[in-house]
C-alpha cells in the first residue's frame, strides 16, 4: 500500500528538519594529523546520525570548505541517506569570509526551499571550525561576520564556533558568534566533538520543549 509513495525526500519526509552547515577549515596548516582526525570525526558524525532513525530523517547536511581550492561548496544539502561521508584534503589559504558567505547563502536558500515545499524546520545550525587566521577578502569577512552575528541575535541561526589548536583566531570566531562563546578543541578531539554534535542533532530532532533545546552536557572535548 505504501509502494506508491513518491521519491522526493524533501516533500515526502514529514519530519521537521535540522539543517546543518559544516563550514570547515581545510587550509594547508591542517595537513597531516589534523585533517585525518577531522575526517575521522566527520565519519563518526555521519555514522552516528545514521544510526538514529529519527535523527537520520531530520538531519539535512551541507559542507562548505575553505583552503583547498579556495572557499567552496563541498557538498550541497542532502539527507544523510543520499550522502556518502566526504573525504577532505588540506592545502591552500584560509578564506573564511568567502566560505561563511557561501554557508550563510546555502542555509538561507535551504530555508526558502523548505518554505516553498511546506516542510517544517528547526532554525539552522552553522558549525565553523578553523585552526588559523582568515586570510581571504577582508570585506567579505566583515560582511559575513555581521550577517552571522545578527542572525544569531535574532535567534535565526545556531552557531557552533570551534577553534583548533593554538593558532586559531578566537577573536574572529567570537565576532562571528558574539552570543555563543567559541570553544577551543582540546588536542584534536574531533571524534568527541562530532559525537556530541550528532547527539545534539538527535536531541533536537526529537523536539524537546520550547524553543531552547536542552543539548547534552559537553564532555571533555573542550579546554574550558
Amino acid at each position: 500500500m505504501l509502494n506508491d509513495f513518491g521519491n522526493d525526500d524533501l516533500i515526502d519526509n514529514p519530519t521537521t528538519r535540522v539543517p546543518v552547515c559544516l563550514c570547515l577549515d581545510t587550509s594547508g596548516s591542517m595537513l597531516g594529523q589534523p585533517i585525518d582526525e577531522l575526517n575521522r570525526g566527520l565519519k563518526q558524525f555521519f555514522q552516528e546520525v545514521a544510526a538514529d532513525e529519527v535523527a537520520q530523517s531530520a538531519a539535512d547536511i551541507c559542507i562548505v570548505t575553505f583552503g583547498d581550492k579556495g572557499a567552496r561548496l563541498f557538498q550541497d544539502f542532502s539527507s544523510l541517506e543520499a550522502t556518502a561521508c566526504p573525504q577532505l584534503t588540506a592545502s591552500g589559504g584560509t578564506p573564511m569570509g568567502e566560505a561563511l558567505t557561501i554557508a550563510l547563502d546555502k542555509l538561507e536558500q535551504r530555508k526558502q526551499k523548505y518554505k516553498d515545499s511546506g516542510v517544517d524546520y528547526w532554525q539552522p545550525w552553522l558549525v565553523l571550525m578553523t585552526d588559523g587566521q582568515p586570510n581571504g577578502d577582508k570585506l567579505a569577512l566583515e560582511a559575513a561576520c555581521l550577517k552571522a552575528s545578527s542572525l544569531q541575535a535574532e535567534k535565526k541561526l545556531n552557531i557552533f564556533p570551534i577553534g583548533i589548536g593554538k593558532d586559531a583566531d578566537m577573536t574572529v570566531l567570537s565576532r562571528v558568534s558574539p552570543y555563543r562563546t567559541p570553544l577551543k578543541l582540546a588536542g584534536l578531539k574531533f571524534v568527541e566533538f562530532f559525537q556530541w554534535l550528532s547527539r545534539s542533532v538527535s536531541r533536537t530532532s526529537q523536539s524537546i520543549p520550547g524553543e531552547k533545546v536542552e543539548l547534552p552536557p559537553n564532555g571533555d572535548w573542550t579546554t574550558l
Binding site: P14, T16, K115, G118, V119, Q123
Partner: peptide, 12 residues
C-alpha cells in the same frame, strides 16, 4: 507524520 500546520510559505 505530517504536522497539521506545515504549509507552503510557512514560518517556524
Amino acid at each position: 507524520g505530517k504536522p497539521p500546520y506545515s504549509q507552503l510559505g510557512g514560518e517556524d
